[in-house]
């Protein structure tokens, strides 16, 4: 099971808490998923925050607060400080968004914010692209886990750059890597685990499924299958056919 900042979690599935049809369905989906980590956010208190907090506590998972929606270093750092106090954890999923349509990270602001936060004792989970150099800089800034996107947040497109993700895995064999965002189907999650990723973080694929608990279970099974497949050392693909049935002994007819 993945270990982040010295803490082993019970599942390679990290599940978001947004967009479910109801709190009861959210709880049902979490039970079905076996997720070890729940992502949460901070928003202006309008009356629902305390009920949500009670619901999250009852899930029994670890909490990973995010800085979703932050576009500047200052916003992200202040949000992280507020989240650390509210959720009583040094963990922070650091998002610094660079573009409103693609929601892709601003890598420059991300590295700067990560540097400030790690110096302040945070354990940063950066939502990043699969760019090797950005990832190098994030590690230099003190991050001990990387969370490259599979595809834009909420798109469900899967792993848009398998080559880049494979290269990242090969380049950082000892760094916990999480595919965060873009997962739409269990096959996408399985593919990430087959490549040797340590975990998958998803939300919309489960929350917006017709049957969120059913999809949560499917994701858990896919992640289990992908993990087992990676451990079993998959064959190398090849372009030409190779007969699996022996040619020796074939009859002359």
């Amino acid at each position: 099971m993945p270990t982040f900042y010295g803490t082993e979690v019970s599942s390679a599935l990290m599940l978001g808490t947004a967009g479910y049809p109801s709190p009861a369905i959210l709880a049902e989906a979490f039970r079905a998923s076996g997720a070890g980590i729940a992502t949460v956010s901070l928003r202006r208190e309008t009356g629902g925050g305390q009920d949500f907090w009670a619901l999250i506590r009852d899930l029994g998972t670890r909490i990973l607060p995010n800085t979703a929606g932050c576009h500047t270093v200052r916003e992200a750092v202040t949000t992280a400080q507020m989240a650390r106090e509210v959720f009583d954890t040094p963990w922070i999923k650091l998002e610094v968004i660079g573009h409103a349509d693609s929601l892709q990270p601003d890598p420059f602001a991300l590295v700067e914010a990560a540097s400030i936060l790690t110096a302040d004792g945070f354990q940063v989970f950066p939502y990043c692209t699969e760019d090797l150099i950005v990832c190098e800089h994030l590690l230099d800034a003190g991050c001990e886990v990387l969370m490259p996107w599979g595809a834009p947040i909420g798109s469900g497109l899967g792993l848009n750059n398998r080559y880049g993700l494979r290269a990242l895995r090969a380049h950082f064999p000892d760094v916990p890597l999480v595919v965060d965002a873009g997962i739409g189907l269990p096959s996408h999650a399985a593919a990430a685990m087959e490549m040797g990723f340590d975990a998958v973080l998803l939300n919309t694929a489960v929350a917006k499924a017709g049957d969120p608990a059913g999809m949560a279970r499917a994701m858990a099974l896919a992640i289990e299958a992908g993990t087992a497949a990676h451990a079993a050392d998959p064959m190398e693909p090849r372009d030409m056919a190779a007969p699996s049935t022996p040619l020796i002994g074939k009859a002359f007819l």
């Binding site: 967009g19 901070l42 607060p65 919309t204």
Partner: peptide, 24 residues
Amino acid sequence: AGLRATTALTEGAALEVLAPMQGG
């Protein structure tokens, strides 16, 4: 939280009060 009682408001200040919320 520990500094709220000693942090003074000034005219026109912007106070943000945030609570746990759903997130991905």
